[in-house]
Design a protein around this nucleic acid. Structure first.
Lengths: 90, 90
DNA sequence: TGACGATATGTCATTTCTGACATACATTTA
DNA sequence: TAAATGTATGTCAGAAATGACATATCGTCA
């Protein structure tokens, strides 16, 4: 795995392992994660535009501040479903 | 809810309730379901193109024939995550 | 007709996601 | 600096999604 990609992924909380393990993410896994991060950034931008706090957005979409934070950081525990629903409700 | 939309949804296994209950799907819910059905059809088309049976595709994506069937019919038990992953693996 | 291959539906144990909470960290303002 | 406000992280019980299996339905060909 390229160092740049590894850093990008690790910076977003993904366990990538260490070089000695020869761990690899498949293209599919990488693509999935990148899509997630793209949606995450979109969500963050949208919220900023509206000048809402995570807490306020959480109430609008019947969620919690902590989960909104996890959405925006592309946390592995967040599904695409949740991200897309959040983007729709905006 | 318009009759056409109701039929469309009911034809795909969604519980829409009956008129007496004054049940409504929100715009968000409808949009979510329509997106799901769009992906479902896309998946079905892609598989047809490749002349694969549901069983064969299931093996390729580490799933089961029954779940592939549910993906393609937009079953409520199928997440967008699964649909998108399936489309990626193709 | 019936038998066969493909697709759909129902159910279930296990896995994964969720909101909620506590708490840590970051940024701003007085 | 300290307090206030906003964001991130860890954990967990309950909810939802998953693959697997059984079985039903559909289509088609003999």
């Amino acid at each position: 795995m390229k160092t740049a990609k590894r850093n990008k992924l690790e910076a977003n909380g993904w366990k990538v392992g260490n070089a000695a393990d020869f761990l690899e993410l498949s293209d599919e896994e990488s693509a999935y994660i990148e899509l997630k991060l793209k949606l995450a950034n979109k969500l963050k931008d949208a919220r900023s535009q509206r000048r809402l706090t995570q807490k306020q957005l959480a109430e609008l979409i019947d969620s919690s501040q902590s989960r909104v934070a996890k959405m925006e950081t592309g946390d592995p525990s967040v599904s695409l479903d949740l991200l897309i629903k959040a983007l729709r409700k905006n």
